[in-house]
Design a protein around this nucleic acid. Sequence first.
DNA 1: GGCGATCTTGCTCTCTTGAGCAGCGGCCAC
DNA 2: GTGGCCGCTGCTCAAGAGAGCAAGATCGCC
Lengths: 314, 314
Amino acid sequence: MSDTDELLSIRAAELYYEENQTQDEIGVILRLTRWKVGRLLASAKANGFIRIEIVHPRARRLPIERRLRESTGLTDAIVVSSAGVSSDAELQSRTAQAAADYLTSLRPIPRTLGISWGRTLHDVSLHLKQGWAPGVNVVQINGGVSLNQRTGTAASTAVTIAHKADGSATLLPSPAIFERLETKQAMEADRTVAGVLALARNAQAYVFSAGQADANSALVDSGYLTVAQIDDLVTRGAVGDVVGRYIDQNGRIVDPELNERTVGIQLDQLRRAPLTIAVISGRSKHAIARAVVRNGLCTVLVTDEDTANALLQD
Amino acid sequence: MSDTDELLSIRAAELYYEENQTQDEIGVILRLTRWKVGRLLASAKANGFIRIEIVHPRARRLPIERRLRESTGLTDAIVVSSAGVSSDAELQSRTAQAAADYLTSLRPIPRTLGISWGRTLHDVSLHLKQGWAPGVNVVQINGGVSLNQRTGTAASTAVTIAHKADGSATLLPSPAIFERLETKQAMEADRTVAGVLALARNAQAYVFSAGQADANSALVDSGYLTVAQIDDLVTRGAVGDVVGRYIDQNGRIVDPELNERTVGIQLDQLRRAPLTIAVISGRSKHAIARAVVRNGLCTVLVTDEDTANALLQD
DNA sequence: GGCGATCTTGCTCTCTTGAGCAGCGGCCAC
DNA sequence: GTGGCCGCTGCTCAAGAGAGCAAGATCGCC
């Protein structure tokens, strides 16, 4: 397009989008036919001079969702807009909201829903509306927090989600990671625990988040791992954890021995499940999000625009 | 509007603006009539959820221009968009470009055009196209740079503008500020100088910029004033200078004695002129821009979006 | 619980916009 | 210089979107 046409297209766009003139009126002002004006506006759009943004906490980015589905093979992708977001916390809240919306709209409604725990899942539980689903049985799929003052977060997340669905919660009464393998095995042998784990393995749908591999991990907060242990895992290629299990960028368990001592369903069980919803957002989780998506650990991803774009870079 | 309607309006907006669906198609998807969809889209716009931005160096902000004209009584206002601008220099370049465009489109074409000098005016001169006007006589309206290596900037600006209009330049062969009043008066008594000043007073249009009152002033750069002198002026209320004369926020001369020693047309002559175009942009010039506009020193303002918004705050 | 006021809804009608097409003019090769 | 090709222009025609209106729903007030 010629230079003067480019300038004209900008003048036309100003009158069209900012002054709400019709293409006809613009034609009179710029001494053009209305068809020419229409073509100029189309070219302004095609050249990317017109940027349309939906500024709202609930806004999603459908084109990015589509590209993400196409390039990764996910069955569904939910991408929240990061337009006008100032803090990471706000972004995560938006993502949790979107996850809650997604759960609410799920059809058929899962009878048993396996969930992990953490800040994100807690956030999701808060965003769910009372009565979001009728009678869902929520089952915890990995061992919960129980070593310090944050006791009960894991349980309360499951209970809240179940309560709001007028359903029931099945808790996994176990630490996330045992110090000794024998203790863990003894625990798993217990009928109650074995029953919960069996229920977890047969859930119709899973919702989980993922943690980045750094000192801010919930597993460090909860006292299951030390910062030194995390550092070691990172050295060995860990990018983050999924249901308490640390993986590298190829989705492989980084420390099999540690993995053995971790209570909850196996990653392969997640991989085989037909509906696994990962809720991951924030700058620091790009790497673990990539690992989760690239290695088939989820079929549905709920995330933010920036993380989605990072995934599309590859 | 109800909460669910708000959410629906966002969903509709996503489908409409990002997925290019028709309101009819959206109606099918969201199980609404197309009229409801149309109303939701209208409400999304009305609520400011839809942000449309024209991203282009030549883009202007017509609604702000209109508000500026209405609230200040300017006969015209040109406001360039600051969308996608990273540096102050880029913004100033855009503003200078807009000023050049405005000059080019001026009708009737002024026979004599009075101009000041400075970085901004120099920038404007560079953005003018060869043949922007036929045969304009450009006359310098205030004393020029001549004390140091930047010699000639003032003259070259005038010459460039005149040359590109296939016209002539009339230079004011004088320093900006004299040290002694007597020398200045002697200079003004000279027939040549007096002639130039008379021509300047009778120009049909004026274009000038304004300087902020700080150590970066062109008058400091050129050696006419010291930083200490500027500090003193600021203490006395100066917000900046117009054609070399420092004014406070009420448009009053801050230092009458200094003003007497300054060569060029008087501010009152600007105030009386029918067409005075001020070109002012950049964060640091908000105060002086306000002083210029509020006190009738220009009839046309060319500026950037941020400065314009600052003016509209009052 | 009844009544009026107000808001919402789904419609018709009209204006606005986009798709597609024929004709014109410029440009290049020969 | 001439013929053919390509791109731009202004048109017709149909789809899309908005304004306005009347009927129905909802709400508050008594």
